[in-house]
Amino acid sequence: MEAFFGSTLAVAIAEIGDKTQLLALLLVARYHRPWTIAAGILVATLVNHAVSALLGVWLADVIPSQWMSWLIAASFVAVAIWVLIPDKADDNISRWDKYGPFVATCVLFFIAEIGDKTQVATVILAAKYDALIAVILGTTLGMLLANLPVLFTGRWLLCRIPLNVVHWCAFVLFIGFAVITVLR
């Protein structure tokens, strides 16, 4: 359960103010189909985070165990610093219009997650915990928890969340993960 809840919390907080939230806002503004876009986010995130978690498990197998906790802790610190850097979303949505909102969301979210801090966090979390499915489901739930409110409340919500406070909370969370990893 620790892997599931830790993964959910880490990604949900790290995603606030992320480019995928901006992408979700652009998609719902363009297509006006929040449930369809939510389904696309779910599929794209499951696939992306499953691949990421598998990579994390593989890395945990090939990297010597005496190095693993230090590498994971250093990675958490790097992600903590990364969440303090604001993202921007590109408006490449129009080229996907002919495929509809579901396919557009699947493709654009999958691409947006490549190399993103939550993808890196998924790799790290999968390497840290011996719970592949819990990490995949937790990080996917975290992504949905961060993006679904944007789909249904849009700009109203984004205007009321102090993003600098959220980014600092995510920073503290990832630093906490780093400290706990080293202490264990």
Score class of each variant (00 low, 15 high):
residue 43 V to G: 04
residue 45 T to G: 03
residue 46 L to H: 09
residue 46 L to I: 13
residue 46 L to M: 10
residue 48 N to D: 14
residue 49 H to I: 00
residue 51 V to P: 01
residue 51 V to L: 15
residue 53 A to Y: 01
residue 53 A to H: 01
residue 54 L to K: 01
residue 56 G to E: 03
residue 58 W to S: 01
residue 58 W to Q: 02
residue 60 A to D: 05
residue 61 D to C: 07
residue 61 D to P: 00
residue 63 I to N: 07
residue 63 I to Y: 05
residue 63 I to R: 10
residue 65 S to W: 13
residue 66 Q to Y: 14
residue 67 W to T: 04
residue 68 M to L: 15
residue 68 M to E: 10
residue 68 M to K: 02
residue 69 S to H: 14
residue 69 S to L: 08
residue 70 W to Q: 13
residue 70 W to L: 13
residue 70 W to E: 12
residue 71 L to Y: 12
residue 71 L to C: 09
residue 75 S to E: 02
residue 77 V to H: 06
residue 78 A to G: 06
residue 79 V to D: 02
residue 80 A to M: 10
residue 81 I to L: 15
residue 82 W to A: 03
residue 82 W to F: 13
residue 83 V to I: 09
residue 83 V to C: 13
residue 83 V to R: 02
residue 84 L to Q: 10
residue 85 I to Y: 13
residue 86 P to Y: 03
residue 87 D to H: 04
residue 87 D to F: 01
residue 87 D to Q: 09
residue 88 K to W: 12
residue 88 K to Y: 13
residue 88 K to N: 11
residue 89 A to S: 15
residue 91 D to I: 09
residue 92 N to G: 14
residue 92 N to Q: 12
residue 93 I to P: 00
residue 93 I to R: 03
residue 94 S to N: 12
residue 94 S to F: 09
residue 95 R to L: 11
residue 97 D to M: 14
residue 97 D to N: 13
residue 98 K to C: 05
residue 98 K to W: 05
residue 98 K to E: 15
residue 98 K to M: 05
residue 100 G to F: 10
residue 102 F to N: 11
residue 102 F to M: 12
residue 105 T to I: 06
residue 107 V to P: 00
residue 109 F to W: 07
residue 109 F to P: 03
residue 111 I to S: 02
residue 112 A to Q: 04
residue 112 A to M: 06
residue 113 E to A: 11
residue 113 E to K: 03
residue 114 I to Y: 06
residue 118 T to Q: 07
residue 118 T to I: 02
residue 119 Q to N: 14
residue 119 Q to L: 08
residue 120 V to Q: 08
residue 121 A to G: 12
residue 123 V to D: 01
residue 123 V to K: 02
residue 124 I to E: 05
residue 124 I to S: 01
residue 125 L to P: 01
residue 125 L to K: 07
residue 126 A to H: 00
residue 126 A to R: 00
residue 127 A to Q: 02
residue 129 Y to F: 15
residue 130 D to I: 00
residue 131 A to M: 09
residue 131 A to R: 01
residue 132 L to T: 00
residue 133 I to P: 00
residue 133 I to A: 09
residue 133 I to V: 15
residue 136 I to A: 04
residue 137 L to Y: 12
residue 137 L to D: 08
residue 138 G to F: 11
residue 142 G to I: 09
residue 143 M to N: 11
residue 144 L to V: 05
residue 145 L to E: 10
residue 146 A to W: 00
residue 147 N to M: 08
residue 148 L to H: 05
residue 148 L to T: 03
residue 148 L to I: 15
residue 148 L to P: 11
residue 149 P to A: 12
residue 150 V to H: 04
residue 151 L to P: 06
